[in-house]
Design a protein around this nucleic acid. Structure first.
Lengths: 199, 199
DNA sequence: GTCTATACGCCGATAGAC
DNA sequence: GTCTATCGGCGTATAGAC
């Protein structure tokens, strides 16, 4: 998002460049298999010290990365809830978003559903306690109240619905299912919704 | 499985002791957050060199661990297929096994569904190509042939069924659902089976 | 043949010069 | 804000004591 000055000198490395390169490397090789040396090379500076100007340590990169993803997801969910009223419509749009993201920015989805946050950031609150999950949970609770979703523990409903969705996305990310196939998306949505829908 | 001589001297460290301690540490803190020094302490020797008598390196420990789990799972599935004929019965028993394992040996299930094998063992074949998965896949294909399971891509059926099961087991492992609650198990089974069953 | 002592290389991290 | 220099920790590896 910076105005690019490609003239003259050794371009200063921005925080966003480091984040972008790290996200790519982390999702390709894993957080622990990625060294600061590799991140340094990817952004084009000579030593790792430059990274420490923007981040306290390697873990801080993952923290900001994860926080950004959580925040942007939270905003998207707000938008979805504003534009739709029924739980089925809201969940359907959220599934659309996840599949679209898997196609356009697979590294982000990788970070969301493959990476074990607790292993990288032991101090971080679990996904279940983050804003996006709370909002999804509220959607499900409203769905139960309105009779769209059958009366079960909301945590179980979440587990069934996103169990199917995220397991399918895993297969897409690993290349075992083609990204582009819309049919997988609509089938996965249908199965996931059926697993919690009333009747 | 050794006859324990608890008399006298500094007991020899067996391969099984190292494997057991490693499995525990890996599932508690993660593979990369576990040092050979910690494994050494857990089995009660003074230096890490003793470990190298049994394993080439840290990765080899994970390899044997993973191989053992895969093998034992494969044998259990053979047994289940021998004792049951219908796909529904076979899958039901396999789900029983997974929930029982989660209660009795959560570290094993952790290794199976939380750990990203590709990150620890980049050379290892993906789970989808291991014997246990192939056998599960065959159960599903037979279920489709016999009209028990609806006609969809077996890979999708696998994804739906084990998406629900493994996502639920994740919640149990993280402590968000109680281990002992049989009701979660039967509910999860029902939802998982319904997501692929015919009609 | 099992364990101990010790050394090497890579990575994460810090301090200070320009 | 980029680079030089340097440190400690860990995984790895080997040679030798019992």
């Amino acid at each position: 998002m910076d105005t690019e000055k490609k003239s003259k000198a050794k371009k200063p490395v921005t925080q966003d460049e480091i984040l972008l390169a790290s996200l790519k490397l982390f999702s390709e090789k894993g957080y622990f298999n990625t060294s600061l040396t590799e991140i340094k090379d990817a952004v084009g500076i000579k030593t790792t010290s430059g990274i420490y100007q923007h981040f306290k340590n390697k873990q801080a990169i993952a923290e900001v990365l994860f926080g950004n993803i959580i925040d942007s997801l939270s905003i998207s969910i707000d938008d979805i809830r504003r534009r739709n009223r029924k739980a089925s419509e809201q969940l359907r749009e959220f599934v659309d978003l996840l599949f679209r993201l898997t196609e356009e920015a697979p590294e982000i989805v990788h970070f969301l559903i493959i990476v074990n946050i607790k292993e990288i950031l032991p101090e971080h609150k679990p996904l279940l306690e983050t804003a996006p999950f709370n909002k999804i949970s509220r959607i499900i609770q409203n769905g139960i109240k309105d009779g769209e979703i059958r009366s079960i523990d909301p945590l179980l409903a979440y587990s069934y619905f996103f169990g199917i969705i995220s397991h399918t996305l895993r297969l897409v990310l690993s290349g075992d299912l083609p990204k582009e196939a819309d049919s997988y998306q609509s089938q996965a949505w249908l199965s996931a919704w059926s697993s919690i829908a009333k009747k």
